[in-house]
């Protein structure tokens, strides 16, 4: 959510600056192929943007017949409207007056906006790590060294073995065996009365769509039930995901809802979170439940 805001804010500023550079541009905004408005300058309201995007619906629906949309140019008596593809899925619309120097506007817009986009793509993950998020926490200090130690050697071996397991059955197994030798490396051992934290290796799948929460992953209900039994009916609502690059993230967890994907040993991760963790679909990650009582405290 925050990254969307950062993204949108940066683009909005870029569009406004572009308008300052080219006063003949009266309106400009950016939208996606799916019709979602990403950012607009300060003079174009949401209603107008929505109406424009709606007007283009018919064209975009049949865009495949001409190989997808590259540019749309509307010439009118008093000006010009131009839409062009600035990225794979992003389009920018510019409304300019009749006297506008379109060559200059195109030069500015086609350089400025894609550059901002590229910078955002590169900077956003870094900057996001610095933004405190109430939902997604990327522990950087204390837990990280522990996990790095854990992941550095044994995971390489458990990775290949688990791949075989996945091929054979795709059932999730608690890989506490692989963790046990690492236990002495953990400086702060868990309290004795608590059961050891079970670990699962799951295959990364992604979830997309507008209604998907960016801070919640989905795993098999069986795993959640298993954990629940382990901690005497205490519901596990958060997990720690750990990649083989040593990235870790704490996030909320829910059971997989898609019946076709149940029992496949998958973890369904929202696209943005997947990018943040720098993992690809089909890769393996390790998950551990986060228990409020006792653990790490």
């Amino acid at each position: 959510m925050i990254e969307d805001e950062v993204y949108s804010f940066a683009l909005k500023n870029a569009l406004t600056e572009m308008k300052n550079l080219c006063p003949d541009v009266t309106h400009s905004f950016i939208f996606t192929y799916d019709g979602e408005i990403v950012a607009g300058d300060d003079t174009t309201n949401n209603k107008t943007m929505t109406q424009v995007v709606d007007s283009f619906n018919g064209i975009f629906e049949k865009a495949n017949s001409i190989g997808g949309i590259d540019t749309i140019t509307l010439q009118t008596g008093k000006g010009r409207i131009q839409v062009y593809c600035i990225d794979k899925n992003l389009y920018m619309l510019i409304v300019a007056s009749k006297k506008a120097d379109m060559t200059y506007i195109n030069t500015v817009s086609r350089v400025l906006i894609p550059t901002i986009l590229k910078i955002l793509e590169k900077l956003n993950p870094t900057s996001l790590k610095n933004i405190p998020s109430p939902k997604i926490e990327i522990p950087k200090t204390k837990p990280k060294p522990k996990l790095e130690k854990e992941t550095s050697i044994p995971i390489e071996t458990s990775f290949s073995s688990s791949e075989q397991d996945v091929e054979e059955k795709l059932e999730l197994e608690i890989s506490s065996e692989t963790l046990e030798p690492e236990k002495p490396k953990i400086e702060e051992p868990l309290p004795e009365e608590l059961p050891e934290l079970p670990t699962h290796q799951l295959i990364v799948d992604t979830i997309g769509g507008l209604l998907v929460r960016g801070d919640t992953v989905q795993i098999d209900k069986e795993i959640l039930d298993e954990w629940e039994q382990l901690w005497e009916d205490k519901e596990v609502t958060e997990i720690m995901i750990e990649t083989f690059n040593g990235e870790t993230v704490k996030c909320k967890v829910k059971p997989i809802t898609d019946s076709k994907l149940k029992g496949k040993g998958l973890i369904r991760i929202p696209e943005k979170l997947r990018r943040k963790l720098d993992i690809k679909k089909g890769e393996l990650v390790r998950i551990t439940p986060v228990i409020e009582l006792g653990e790490g405290e």
């Binding site: 007007s55 018919g58 001409i66 590259d70 749309i72 140019t73 009118t76 008596g77 008093k78 409207i81």
Partner: peptide, 29 residues
Amino acid sequence: ISSSALDAAEELSTLFNLGAAKHITVQGK
């Protein structure tokens, strides 16, 4: 797509008060 483009041209020129639409060019890949 032809009909949609012409409709969009009318709608957008009205929406942004740009006078009569002259022509619309849609460049696909």
